[in-house]
Amino acid sequence: MGIRTLIVMLVASILLIAYLATRDTYSLFLPGLLQGAVLTAEITVLGCLLAVAMAVLSALGKLYGPAPLRWLANLYIEIFRGTSALVQLFWLFFVLPQFGVSLEPFAVAVLGLGLNIGAYGAECVRGAIQSVARGQWEAATALNMTRLQMLRRIILPQAFVAMIPPWGNLFIELLKSTALVSLITLSDLAFKAQQMNQTTMKTIPIFTLVLLIYLVLSLLITIGMRLLEQRAAKGLARGRTA
């Protein structure tokens, strides 16, 4: 979908929420749900930061690290991609305390989701780094750069552009996975919805609002990433023609 359509969808959903807020059946639920949405957004942002950090570290470890680091990165990627996000959250929440490590539910949520999406992200970082033309490495070698300089100044800035679209998808994946944290006692958007639904049984208004709020959040991510992509790609094109 084009960025115009996305913006139209975003405005339409915000207007729809605003319109529904004027009606009695809906307005009752909105404040509580928005409270939950704030927690959802917090977990999403922190989770995304952790995911990016883990992805870059493990991709670099897998590509250029010494053998033990490579194995460690592979182990991390396979384990977190091979099992369900919910199983990982439950493991951190129920099993880890039995080994003497008790984490706050919020920390479990950020850690679990960040590590999960980070493992998927590692593969997309690796793909993006490998998609940078060989000649760039050779030119950097010819300029007598150290390996770290090459990565930092030449390779990563170019790989960055190729990484943006898949990261957009992963951030949305992470946003959607935050619904799982309602099952480890955090009162996020999904938890509030569940709770209100159980007390009032007004399923349709509650879940319509919840779906709309998630839609708004994910459209914000999509549009943000599209703008970032346009900006980053523009810089690259200018660099090439100069």
Binding site: K176, S177, A179, L180, S182, A190, Y214, L215, S218
Partner: peptide, 26 residues
């Protein structure tokens, strides 16, 4: 259809499970 697909893909599965489970009885 593309709006519907976008809608389904950008909202959590857990919410959709709850929705289907609770909305059909009504």
């Amino acid at each position: 259809i593309s709006v519907l697909v976008e809608l389904i893909r950008s909202t959590p599965l857990l919410i959709q499970i709850f929705f289907l489970y609770f909305v059909f009885p009504s």
